[in-house]
Design a protein around this nucleic acid. Structure first.
Lengths: 327, 327
DNA sequence: CTGTTAGCGCTTTCAT
DNA sequence: ATGAAAGCGCTAACAG
């Protein structure tokens, strides 16, 4: 595994020429090109990305910062991000922040040392100051003061859709159960969309919305149902919360979907082919990943980008709502 | 964000000195160290990992090659690998091979260009030739001809344990349902352990073991149960297969665990805190990740390493077996 | 069309 | 204890 100099020597040309054939830049006579290619093959030449990165100040690597890859939503997202990056010949450095501010900052630092070309981040801490640096940055579901580009799904409509479906399926009193971060997030609109739609339809509703981190969350859910025994349709802020609700309801001996119907939000699946195990409002994870990758590359290439991209959500029928509530 | 030269200029020292304080190498007078550190702070200096990597021929990055991150087993594994690497100041490049030979090779190539220090791989294709290269390589569950180090769990015992538990819980006829790769894998021992234990206990058993990729797998499972209607305890080669079995059995209107008990294998969980949704034999994913990271770093540092590490598995009780079959 | 050369930012002798 | 200088492998500007 030699260097460019070895190839040049073997092909009896200068290193500049080798570089030219390697990058298809400048004009090279067909015969020399062939000589060089032969030499490369013979030496099993592999260009050194670090040397190139140093020279070009460009690494063709982006960092993905997420709370934890051990979560089906993030792992699906990471899957599609990697796949899209790979199509653009980019590599992906994976960073788990564990929802710790310190770790997020540490990673941003690390990532600058490593000279990634940009960052795609689902972060929940207060990074505003750091994002101000000129590193290309694309966030998911999260606004910063700066004009960073943000990819999100139509969270408001997710809420509307959930309320609408629940009522369509015969619910008489709705509930919203969720938690939110201290920091401004797109996902808080799930609640407002839900509330707005409920009011539009003049359906009564109850709300539980705790601030993360909530301790004894299951107990909170139980209290919610004890205080609102007539709620027969609930929209959970995430699918995992829906799962928690399911567990509580089972403990309380209340049947789903017969007595209470539940719609989650996110649309997590455990692996590519497997079906949903909840009725849910699904975010278009693949499209979000694609958008995030395309945008980050545009930003890296210095093009200006619309600062907010909102993708559509869809209702997916699963086993936690009543099937076909037809006439 | 200046360079080392800027720091040197500001501190009125040579770049060599800056390098020395940065790396704590060589002796530096306390007063100069302070001057340099002040200059670094003032310029907000961040060392360039690419320049260092080029010089040192060491990048502090490893690549993780897995079939797909969108799978709870791999995402848990990746989570722990990243975490352990991070503790050792290493970064992780994530590569999804999509179980495609071409993509695996492409990644190995890409990863060589990028000069990672080593690879941790869960691969299923025929990479033997490439692994022969001198890149430090640690495999999971997979043998190569070469003396690459392999981290695995006690798959044979997993099979034994499953048979034992099933019988302990009252099963009279056992079944094994699984698939296997064309290539030699540690996981085939799950079947042999199961069979050996069944014979030891003199319990009858039936086997379905298809070669990947199996088309119409659900249909195969259904056929298995039609041909073996008396099987009342089955060991699934993976948790996902157990899930498929569950679906088929539901379609066939056979109750789990009342009529048929199922034990899966792997111990997947959707996220860190969440409980198992199957009775299963769990692999110690965290320990496997830790071992893989420790071993790859040893190999990178040129130390010799035991070529095979086998970690213990455990039975975890879930809802697909009968609870407490006590006297 | 192609060879030569000057760095990219860093580490590491080698003097001093 | 520290400055000067060489060079890691590559690209791009400059001659020819």
């Amino acid at each position: 595994m030699g260097t460019m100099k070895d190839v040049a020597a073997l092909a009896k040309v200068g290193v500049g020429t080798v570089s030219r054939v390697l990058n298809n830049s400048g004009a090279v006579k067909e015969s020399t090109r062939r000589k060089v290619e032969a030499a490369m093959k013979e030496l099993n030449y592999i260009p050194n990305a670090y040397a190139r990165g140093l020279k070009m100040n460009k690494t063709h690597t982006i960092a993905l910062i997420i709370p934890t890859i051990w979560h089906p939503f993030f792992s699906e997202f990471a899957y599609y991000v990697e796949r899209n990056l790979s199509e653009h010949k980019y590599k992906m450095l994976l960073c788990n922040s564990d929802v710790s501010n310190d770790k997020e900052l540490e990673y941003i630092q690390m990532v600058q040392e490593n000279k990634v070309d940009g960052i795609i981040g689902i972060t929940y801490s207060d990074l505003d100051s750091f994002v101000s640096s000129h590193l290309p940055f694309v966030t998911i579901d999260r606004h910063f003061k700066e004009e960073t580009v943000c990819v999100t799904s139509d969270n408001f409509h997710a809420g509307e859709l959930a309320a609408e479906k629940l009522v369509e399926k015969g619910c008489k009193k709705l509930g919203y159960i969720g938690t939110h971060s201290r920091f401004p997030t797109e996902t808080t609109k799930r609640r407002s969309g839900f509330v707005e739609q409920a009011e539009l339809m003049e359906i009564p509703y109850a709300i539980y919305d705790g601030e993360d981190p909530v301790v004894e969350f299951k107990q909170e859910i139980r209290t919610f149902f004890e205080e609102n025994p007539d709620v027969d349709g609930v929209f959970a802020h995430t699918d995992f919360i829906a799962l928690d609700i399911l567990e509580v309801l089972e403990e309380m001996n209340r049947k789903v979907p017969e007595e209470v119907q539940i719609i989650g939000c996110d649309g997590i699946k455990m692996e590519a082919g497997r079906k949903q195990f909840l009725s849910t409002i699904r975010q278009p994870v693949d499209l979000m990943a694609k958008a995030a990758v395309e945008k980050i590359i545009l930003v890296i290439d210095g093009e200006s980008v619309k600062t907010k991209i909102t993708l559509p959500v869809h209702y997916v029928e699963g086993p936690t709502t009543k099937n076909q509530m037809s006439k």
